[in-house]
Amino acid sequence: MSDLRFDGRVAVITGAGRGLGRAYALLLAAQGASVVVNDPGSTIAGDHSDADPAAQVVAEIIAAGGTAIASTDSVATAEGGRAIVEAALDRFGRVDVLIHNAGNNRYAPLAEMSYEDFDAVLDVHLRGAFHVVRPAFASMREARYGRIVLTSSIGGLYGNQNVANYGAAKAGIIGLSNVAALEGREHGVTSNVIVPAALTRLAEGLDTSAYPPMEPELAAPAVGWLAHESCSVTGEMLVSIAGRIARAYVAETVGVHQPAWTMAEVGDRIAEIRDTTDSWILPVVPSGHTDHIIKSFALATEGRARVSQGL
């Protein structure tokens, strides 16, 4: 069965020298995209550099009849981010797809994590996303077309121990993507988040003997669809783990309105406050932010009306 094509499209993929990023690059290139394979070849901690990973993926793509160039700039600086996007513009004249997959990690308990280790991870994941999104978005907006895919994690959604830096960065990426989705809507630019899981270098040291198949190639199609012109969603999150693809989303309970509260009353009514029956799901696009305020204000108005009527 034929799959979706990317003929004539240009994709910039960060962290594409290994693991998930490599799988994304090979998939899009096989389907006709011209790919900028970005990877400085760093260690998991983000140290050192090695041009070989990016060059090897480019060689694979070219050997298979595709088109690709290597970029070894780092997303950790604004200059590096601009250089990555400019590599696509200089060589191919456009940027249609941006997939920010680059990542690093430095582990430490929260109370012992150094500011250096916290910043080093935010520099690649969260600031790195901004460093490439900002120039790519400007080009996409001018072209009135673009597909942005940013990478979060279950660590960003649910947290995990010993990775406060990683969790904070991955949660922040969701907010950045939502803003890009809102601002890109009128310009033909979508922005979505992928929450992938695969056995890559980040799994080194873990006992994965009981894991189901989780090769990076299994997660790539979800990213490919988000990057394709047929993508029909924006401001959303797709989870891809072990062959399962799902939507993750933010929801609110209806909650409880009172015209005034004491701290004790919050505790007394916490079960009602936390009741998930009829939860609100407010899509980012077109108007989740506004809908949240409107619905909240409506409850307040109804509450005041009941009080004035003595109900």
Rank of each mutant, 00 (worst) to 15 (best):
F118T: 13
S153C: 09
L126F: 09
N192R: 15
I62E: 07
G175V: 09
G167C: 09
Q56A: 15
S42N: 08
A30H: 02
E112H: 14
D268W: 00
A88K: 05
S49Q: 08
M263I: 13
A203F: 06
V97N: 06
Q161T: 11
I84E: 02
A246W: 07
R82W: 07
V121P: 09
A108L: 01
V121C: 08
S74A: 06
L20W: 08
A11E: 02
R22T: 01
H131C: 03
L150T: 04
M237W: 13
I245F: 10
R141F: 13
D207R: 12
G288P: 02
Y115N: 06
N165L: 05
S279L: 15
D275A: 10
T151N: 08
M263W: 14
A29I: 02
D123V: 00
H187D: 12
L26P: 10
Q258T: 01
Q31P: 02
H289V: 12
I154D: 08
N38C: 01
L176F: 11
R5G: 05
G205Y: 04
D117Y: 00
Q31Y: 10
G156D: 12
V239E: 13
R106L: 13
R127E: 14
D3Y: 03
L282Q: 03
G310E: 01
Y145P: 11
V124S: 07
E60A: 11
W261T: 04
G17V: 03
A305G: 14
G172M: 11
Y145S: 10
M1N: 11
H100E: 03
A210K: 15
E215I: 06
V121N: 12
G288C: 01
A45F: 01
K295A: 01
G175F: 11
I148Q: 01
R306H: 06
L27E: 07
I281K: 00
V58T: 12
L122M: 01
A298Y: 03
D39Q: 05
F92T: 03
N192C: 14
W225R: 13
H125S: 00
G81Q: 07
M1F: 11
A30S: 13
I62V: 08
L238E: 01
A264D: 15
F130M: 14
H292K: 04
K170R: 04
F137K: 02
F297L: 04
T253F: 15
H257F: 14
R144Q: 15
T67I: 09
I62Y: 07
R91A: 08
R134S: 13
A220Q: 03
A168S: 05
A102P: 12
V266Q: 07
V189P: 03
A59I: 07
A198C: 05
L282D: 02
V95K: 02
L202D: 06
G17N: 08
L202V: 05
R201T: 08
L126H: 06
I69E: 02
H257R: 13
H131W: 00
R134Y: 00
V57Q: 10
N101K: 15
A129M: 15
G235V: 09
R201K: 08
Q161N: 11
V12F: 02
R134I: 07
G8M: 09
T43D: 11
A70F: 09
N178D: 04
M1Y: 09
L126Q: 00
A242Q: 06
